[in-house]
Nucleic acid binder design. Structure first.
Length: 149
DNA sequence: GCCAACGTTGGC
DNA sequence: GCCAACGTTGGC
């Protein structure tokens, strides 16, 4: 079982949205490295941190669990979607996603707090210019981060 | 709104 | 395959 961090802009999709829906496909990822994590490495039962970005209080706001492994992201087939990709077909999808299930919500563990915690200094999210929307988290980082709840 | 970082695109 | 131009992300 592995640990991950997944970013979302709360104006688009928030931890509250996930809490209400209970489960949701993690759609709209259009970066190959992030896609490859979902396609090749994320397994049923893996735990993920919900990280909110591009908002007043960037940071980790909850936990979710992979509830379905890789399957095509339906938004790539929808011409009306912002995530439409004309290269994609049902037979040959380009973008795959996992589905996640809500586990827990908690008050934001801010980016500032994460940055000032010595045991979390190597988290990929802290790397300058890191724009990857899905990153692996080590077991010790997971433990240290959730201890800040 | 600014801007650093960095992924993607496309001409050659 | 190189690399300049361009676009996007995301903290501030």
């Amino acid at each position: 079982m592995r640990y991950w961090l997944m970013k979302s802009e709360p104006e688009t999709f928030s931890i509250r949205d996930l809490k209400e829906k209970k489960r949701s496909g993690w759609d709209g990822v259009r970066n190959y490295q992030a896609r490859n994590f979902m396609r090749d490495e994320m397994k049923l039962g893996d735990l993920c941190l919900f990280y909110q970005s591009s908002c007043p209080e960037p940071g980790v706001v909850g936990v979710m669990k992979v509830s379905r492994e890789r399957h095509p992201d339906p938004t790539q087939f929808d011409p009306k979607s912002d995530y439409f990709d004309k290269r994609a077909s049902r037979e040959k999808p380009v973008w795959e996603m996992v589905e996640v299930e809500f586990v827990e919500e908690f008050p934001v563990i801010s980016l500032e707090k994460i940055r000032s915690t010595p045991t979390l200094k190597d988290m990929l999210i802290l790397r300058p210019g890191n724009r990857l929307s899905i990153t692996p988290v080590t077991p010790s980082e997971w433990k240290a981060l959730l201890a800040l709840r």
